[in-house]
């Protein structure tokens, strides 16, 4: 049995597998399959100041090796989150991560303020939702936008702050450096990549929102590349996500530089996916003589360039 424990921003996790925000409700939907305690952490459904209806359905479309969603931050709002949802899992032995999204830096700050003293261990700041008109990925696409949000959140937050980054940024490493310099305690990446599918018969997009975020195995190589780039650009921990569906995928994320992984779309194909991934990581570590999973972090090294080979 390898030691799977990791520490992110001072918060200890018994294992490095976290259920991804938006894929795990408010923590209790998968209780028939495994206890919440089996997970290292759970990132709860993205929460806004006010209740939101989200986008008109259809909101789901299948893709090769993945799926699109255009849920659009449907959630009951921070009041209901604190009053009704969070208390249900407050006593559970799992790292609780609140995921927040706002229309303005001031809204993000207010959300962080509301979470002061709440039973959450970390705040994940979603500046990467591709499905909303205001806020979301618009903040995460530029350093100025990202910094403006993180600066306000850090003024108010009572918990360490994880900033969830979008692959839509021109240079995600630059965004990561910018939020690190504003005091972000960790980053998580990648959120979904904006995509589209069209119904051949109706000649209309499958999603009523026209576009939606791509997740699932199709994203894994993009996520690995970005985790690599970001983890080599910042000193704060990186939580890797995007298509992680097996223990091998999770190990690959670690080798690329992640300190933990989040699992999302894999749950929809297999509700046991996160616990299988934990078991597979353990087994992989054992067969490879790895005692501490955290030793795998960033353990891959790039090939050096070989200019001589190109000589004709």
């Amino acid at each position: 049995m390898a030691d799977l424990s990791v520490t992110i921003a001072g918060v200890p996790f018994k294992n490095p597998v976290i259920a991804a925000s938006g894929c795990f409700g408010f923590g209790l939907e998968y209780e028939d399959f495994f206890p919440l305690e089996a997970l290292g952490g759970v990132s709860l459904k993205g929460t806004t100041l006010e209740a939101r209806a989200g986008n008109r359905p259809p909101r789901i479309a299948e893709t090769p090796a993945g799926m699109l969603n255009s849920v659009g931050l449907q959630n009951p709002g921070i009041d209901a989150f604190l009053r009704e949802e969070l208390p249900k899992i407050a006593g559970r032995d799992v790292v609780r991560i609140a995921n927040i999204a706002g229309r303005s830096p001031a809204e993000y700050r207010e959300l962080a303020e509301r979470l002061r003293g709440a039973a959450v261990d970390l705040i994940e700041v979603n500046i990467s939702c591709p499905n909303v008109r205001e806020g979301g990925a618009a903040f995460g696409a530029t350093c100025e936008g990202a910094v403006s949000v993180v600066r306000e959140v850090k003024k108010a937050a009572g918990q360490p702050v994880v900033v969830k980054l979008t692959p839509a940024a021109a240079d995600i490493a630059e965004i990561a450096r910018a939020v690190e310099s504003e005091g972000a305690d960790a980053v998580s990446l990648i959120n979904t990549l904006l995509g589209m599918r069209i119904d051949l018969e109706s000649r209309r997009p499958v999603l009523r929102n026209n576009f939606g975020g791509l997740s699932g195995p199709a994203l894994l190589p993009v996520a690995l590349r970005m985790v690599w780039q970001v983890s080599h650009a910042v000193k704060i921990p990186v939580i890797g996500m995007g298509g992680v569906s097996s223990g091998r995928d999770a190990v690959e994320m670690f080798l690329a530089g992640a300190s933990a992984v989040q699992v999302g779309a894999a749950l929809f194909r297999d509700p046991f996916a996160p616990v299988k991934i934990i078991g597979e990581m353990n087994a992989w570590c054992d067969t490879h003589g790895v005692e501490y999973v955290r030793d795998l972090r960033g353990a891959a090294s790039l090939w050096e360039d070989d200019p001589d080979w190109r000589l004709l």
Binding site: G25, E29, Y30, I60
Partner: peptide, 9 residues
């Protein structure tokens, strides 16, 4: 997607 109420898809 999820079928169990977790993703609100």
């Amino acid at each position: 997607a999820c079928g169990v109420g977790a993703c609100v898809g």
